[in-house]
Computed example of a mutant assay.
Amino acid sequence: MQLQEVISMVRWINEGDPRVPFNDSSVEQWHHALRSVDAAVAKQAVLEHVKINEGIPVSPAAISKRAGYIKTAREAGQRAIEPPRNRVAHPLSWRSRNPEEWDRLFEAGREQRRAELLGREAA
């Protein structure tokens, strides 16, 4: 957030809760905590904090942390609706990529099973 946005935000918070001071040092603390947060996300974080924590005053650290959760949730939601990147249209199976090795292992397994069954008959 830009300094002017932080000033408006702290003024708005102070109007709703006079326990949150609106002065130069308070604005500086809020600006430091919210410098990398989008203004809309910060506002949503304040509203959620007030809704959930009725008796607890809003603090820069709490809002910064909650804004991080909101941003992460929004990004995860966006990733969930986007198709995966670098997806191979028709990936080849291991068998398709290694047909000789597949045949060799298949025959080895067949021989091992045959020997196992013959061993049971002899016993």
Rank of each mutant, 00 (worst) to 15 (best):
M1W: 13
Q2I: 03
Q4F: 08
Q4D: 14
Q4N: 06
I7V: 11
V10N: 07
I13N: 04
N14E: 11
E15F: 02
G16A: 11
P18E: 01
P18R: 10
R19V: 06
V20M: 14
V20E: 06
V20G: 10
P21M: 12
N23T: 01
S25P: 00
S25C: 00
S26G: 10
V27H: 00
W30H: 10
W30N: 00
W30R: 02
H32W: 06
H32R: 14
H32K: 15
A33P: 05
L34S: 01
S36L: 03
S36E: 15
D38N: 02
D38M: 09
A39T: 01
A42G: 00
K43M: 12
Q44P: 13
A45D: 02
V46W: 15
L47I: 02
E48K: 02
V50E: 02
V50W: 07
I52C: 11
I52S: 08
N53C: 03
E54H: 07
G55L: 04
I56R: 12
P57S: 14
V58N: 00
P60D: 10
P60W: 00
P60S: 03
A62C: 02
A62L: 04
I63N: 06
S64N: 07
A67N: 04
Y69N: 07
Y69H: 12
Y69C: 06
Y69V: 15
K71G: 08
K71D: 09
K71V: 11
A73F: 01
R74W: 03
R74M: 07
A76M: 13
G77R: 01
Q78Y: 09
I81M: 10
P83D: 04
P84G: 07
P84S: 08
R85K: 14
N86H: 08
N86P: 08
V88C: 09
L92S: 09
S93Q: 00
W94I: 02
W94D: 01
R95E: 14
N98Q: 08
P99T: 06
E101P: 01
W102A: 12
W102Y: 15
D103M: 09
D103T: 15
R104Q: 09
F106Q: 13
E107R: 12
E107P: 03
E107S: 15
E107W: 14
G109P: 00
R110E: 04
R110N: 11
R110M: 10
R110V: 08
Q112F: 07
R114P: 03
A115Y: 02
E116Y: 11
L117Y: 09
L118A: 05
A123E: 07
